[in-house]
């Protein structure tokens, strides 16, 4: 009887291990496949040249450039707002007040809104309401009221707000209460304490949030499809009202709308590999910093 129970138990324990191994295998197969087919084409030319001959030759420089420009604009918009929201929630707000709960409710739900809905919102609000409104106000032809880099970046910024808020708040929580109290007891004001004492200590966590949101922003396609991304442009974007090429969008269009799949396949795999390296590298860095912060936190408590 006892033996049977143990057999039964080790069977289930084995099943849970098996599930873990399958998840490892999924990750391994996906990354392995992309690396296997993609590494051959990666070269200096591939990263620094524009596509030629209907995407069957040349490189993907404009898509890399567009992605970088997009995430830079996005992070400029989302980082201050996200960090200040976290500061408000953790340092100023009363924990159970209606306002605090409403803010938390909003942040949580923003994290759950489907990315395609952000795309719809970007189109309806930024382009057709703000953009077209600005054009009308300034008496311009269509300048702001069209898909462009700025609106795509702002749409992504809203999408990533929860990522920054959650990471920043976690790092604020990691700062020991005693540090805070010591600073206040020495006569520093609340803002002085936050700026000189708390924020420097919380910096790694804030950085984690920023990196994670950059990684996520670089990989999201649905929100930028209608707010600024273009399949092919002969020039690089040089002002916020230009359209842009983007790695993820490039992958999507090449994979689904290419007239000759076999001819574009090497470039497609190369593009996926570049996108994957970019996002996973950022993720690695974020995970590394975070685990360091958490270890520190455990030591302080």
């Amino acid at each position: 009887m006892r033996f049977r129970i143990n057999l039964f138990g080790s069977f289930f324990t084995g099943l849970t291990l098996f599930a873990t191994l399958i998840i490892f295998a999924i990750l391994f197969v996906i990354i392995g496949n992309v690396v296997l087919h993609g590494h051959k084409i990666i070269s200096w030319e591939f990263i620094t040249q524009a596509p030629r001959e209907g995407m069957t030759a040349g490189g993907i420089f404009p898509a890399i450039f567009g992605t970088v420009a997009l995430v830079i604009l996005m992070i400029i918009a989302v980082l201050p707002v996200g960090v200040m929201t976290a500061i408000y929630l953790h340092e100023y707000a009363k924990p159970e007040s209606v306002l605090t709960r409403t803010i938390r409710f909003a942040v949580n739900n923003l994290a759950g809104v489907p990315s395609i809905v952000f795309g719809l919102f970007g189109l309806g609000f930024f382009i057709q309401f703000i953009g077209a409104g600005m054009d009308k106000f300034f008496g311009l032809e269509v300048v702001w009221g069209q898909p462009c880099l700025l609106w795509a970046a702002l749409t992504l910024a809203l999408l990533n707000l929860p990522v920054v808020v959650v990471a920043a708040e976690e790092s604020l929580r990691a700062v020991p209460k005693e540090t805070r109290e010591a600073s206040l007891a020495l006569g520093a004001t609340k803002w002085q304490t936050i700026r000189r004492i708390i924020l420097p200590q919380a910096l790694p966590g804030v950085l984690t949030g920023a990196i994670l949101s950059i990684s996520r922003g670089a990989g999201e396609v649905a929100p930028i499809m209608f707010t600024g991304a273009a399949y092919f442009l002969p020039y690089l974007p040089h002002k916020p009202t230009d359209q842009f090429m983007e790695l993820g969008y490039h992958v999507y269009v090449m994979a689904t709308q290419s007239p000759d799949v076999e001819a574009t396949k090497p470039i497609l795999y190369g593009t996926v590999l570049v996108l994957l390296i970019l996002t996973l590298l950022l993720n690695f860095i974020a995970i590394f910093i975070r685990s360091k912060v958490r270890r520190q936190m455990r030591q302080t408590i």
Binding site: V34, G219, E220, V251, Y252, L268, L276, T279
Partner: peptide, 26 residues
């Protein structure tokens, strides 16, 4: 344990367009 969690987080970090591409091509 400290190894499994980051691995799953890496899976979370793969952009959905890459998963879509993998499903479509492979």
């Amino acid at each position: 344990k400290e190894f499994i969690k980051p691995i799953v987080e890496i899976l979370a970090g793969i952009p959905s367009v890459v998963l879509g591409f993998f499903a479509l091509m492979v």
